[in-house]
């Protein structure tokens, strides 16, 4: 297992968000976590990379128990994991180009020419052209999300975490992003953990689907297994996916 959650509990004040969830992800797998808003999907992602700390239970990444890591110990773990946030989370004071180059400058000893090549390639991947010199606030929200994806992919992470990567995107870009997740998994053996509401995308590209409700995992399995799942929430998601598409 490259990622493993063992009975993880997380609370904010009196409110328990994760109620002892456990799951594992094999290397190269694409796993979707589905669920309604406020069920703890994003908290799960953030707990994985130490942006939030679990109250109890264990989090394992690439064979290491990271549950009680100090902030500085997380650095090599975070280098392995790229995260696309719910918000584009681009740095306002840097241009699109500098945003994508930011991680490369920090982690790799590359020449400007190599950085330029890598940035251009990543922006091509997400179909972004001719806005390299613009500031994030000068481009559309959809473009910002794609630039954010390019920034994450630029540093070649082993594990990619997506927090609602296609929310706010048009259908064509949504398909392009899903295709990109699939390509990265096939070509680079990148492991992807995707938090989403989109059952249709999950059925299309996921190897495994986890459905969460009120801080608990209520269903899990392959897309085929999900199609025959009897849990009411899964049925609702399936109905919505079939209605829309």
């Amino acid at each position: 297992m490259i990622v493993e959650f063992k009975n993880v509990v997380k609370s904010f004040g009196d409110r328990q968000i994760l109620k002892g969830i456990s799951f594992g992800i094999q290397e190269g797998e694409i796993v979707f976590i589905l669920g309604t808003s406020g069920t703890g999907k994003s908290v799960t992602l953030k707990t994985l990379v130490g942006l939030l700390r679990a109250d109890s239970g264990e989090v394992w990444i690439d064979g290491e128990n990271v549950t009680h890591f100090k902030e500085k110990d997380y650095l090599p773990i975070r280098k392995k994991c790229g995260m696309v946030f719910q918000h584009p989370a681009l740095f306002d004071s840097l241009s699109v180009y500098e945003n994508v180059a930011f991680g490369l400058r920090k982690h790799y000893n590359l020449s400007e020419e190599e950085i330029h090549k890598r940035v251009t390639k990543c922006l091509d991947l997400v179909n972004i052209h001719n806005v390299e010199d613009k500031l994030p606030q000068e481009i559309s929200y959809g473009m910002q999300k794609r630039v954010s994806l390019a920034r994450t992919v630029a540093v070649d992470p082993k594990i990619l975490l997506f927090d609602e990567p296609t929310t706010g995107l048009d259908p064509i870009t949504t398909n392009a992003v899903n295709q990109l997740i699939l390509n990265l998994s096939h070509t680079l053996k990148t492991t992807s953990l995707v938090v989403s509401h989109d059952m249709h995308c999950a059925l299309d590209i996921a190897d495994k689907i986890i459905v969460m409700d009120q801080g608990e995992i209520v269903a899990r399995g392959t897309p085929e297994e999900m199609k025959s799942c009897e849990h009411p929430l899964v049925k609702d998601f399936l109905k919505e996916a079939l209605d829309v598409h």
Binding site: K46, V49, L51, Y74, L75, R78, K79, C81, G82, M83, F85, Q86, H87, P88, A89, L90, F91, D92, F102, G103, K106, H107, S148, V155
Partner: peptide
């Protein structure tokens, strides 16, 4: 504050800053 709520600070942490 804006950086905090738009997850820019989390993004900084993820990039090792």
């Amino acid at each position: 504050g804006t950086m905090q709520i738009t997850e820019q600070i989390d993004a900084l942490k993820m990039l090792g800053i």
